[in-house]
């Protein structure tokens, strides 16, 4: 594990922001930190980045207690982010890079690389206030990764980006992951979670309610719904283990969605159908992360 938190508790005046939160982020993976608004994600990130301290519990980096200097090895892009409006883009990026412990020369060199990569060299001497929000986001992204940290934390990184730029940023993240960086991604965009994240933790009401590998989580939350495509004119079958959810003709086929009941095995279900119909294809529906999110959070409410 590159990053671990153990039983982190943070109490504010009138509410408990984090209640014994433990997460583990393996090295070189993308970790999704999910949860509804106000669940405590930002507080947890602020504790990891040492902006605030936990009331109890601990944060481990590479197996040892995190220390002040670790922040130079973290790149954090907060959800609420801004730049000094009156400063020039290049000056600003230099300033932020130097604050993250880089020398002037190093910072300038790296900036040139990134500005070229994002094709924004001609912004270098423009004032920040002249840039659009998406452009500012790019500068933000650069100043988050410029000092080549091993741990990157992005809070809603795609807000303000058009689809083209979203794609560019996603690819950059995957490239960074391939370089061995560990990434924590906090977002409400569940599609990008499926696309990017290896593991997730879902925080609700100050507690971790779900944690693990994305594929396993989706598998474990299967609603037992199967899709069949049959070569048939119609489908008509009554069985205590089958609940027909929908039936749609598609060209010469019929598409079915069937819910499996009474805990029969997948094989038995398949056999039931295969015995009577010509099956063109069939598969099991995996829930989207969106479904998992909604299901977990609303279940929690009850």
């Amino acid at each position: 594990m590159y990053l671990e938190t153990h039983d982190v508790v943070k109490q504010y005046a009138n509410h408990l922001a984090l209640n014994k939160v433990s997460i583990g982020v393996p090295k070189g993976t993308v970790f999704g930190l999910l949860g509804p608004n106000g669940a405590g994600k930002t507080t947890l990130i602020r504790i990891i980045t040492r902006i605030t301290a936990p009331d109890s519990g601990e944060v481990l980096i590479n197996g040892r207690h995190s220390v002040r200097d670790d922040i130079y090895n973290i790149g954090y892009m907060p959800e609420e982010r801004g730049l000094y409006k009156k400063m020039k883009v290049g000056e600003q990026a230099m300033y932020l890079a130097q604050l993250r412990g880089m020398s002037k020369k190093q910072a300038h060199h790296e900036l040139m690389v990134w500005f070229k990569r994002f094709d924004i060299m001609d912004w270098y001497n423009r004032k920040v206030e002249e840039l659009s929000k998406g452009m500012q986001q790019k500068v933000q992204f650069i100043s988050t990764v410029i000092h080549n940290p091993d741990l990157l934390i992005f809070d809603e990184p795609f807000s303000g980006f058009d689809p083209v730029n979203t794609d560019i940023v996603k690819n950059e993240m995957l490239r960074l992951k391939d370089e061995g960086k560990t990434i924590i991604l906090s977002t409400h965009n569940m599609e990008s979670v499926e696309e990017l994240c290896d593991n997730i933790a879902l925080i609700n009401k100050s507690q971790v309610v779900l944690q693990g590998n994305v594929f396993n989580i989706r598998k474990d939350n299967r609603p037992n719904i199967f899709r069949f495509r049959l070569l048939a004119d119609d489908f008509d079958m009554e069985h205590p283990s089958i609940e027909l959810l929908s039936k749609e003709p598609y060209h010469e086929f019929i598409d079915l969605r069937i819910k499996k009941l009474n805990g029969i095995s997948n094989n038995d279900l398949a056999k039931l159908i295969f015995d009577k119909y010509e099956v063109v294809s069939y598969d099991e529906e995996l829930p989207t992360m969106n479904d998992v999110f909604i299901k977990t959070v609303t279940k929690d409410k009850k």
Binding site: T49, I51, Y72, R81, G82, L83
Partner: peptide, 13 residues
């Protein structure tokens, strides 16, 4: 302008 959020991630308040 929320610059402060960015700043505190690399410097002590």
């Amino acid at each position: 302008s929320r610059v402060v959020e960015v700043m505190v991630s690399s410097v002590k308040p």
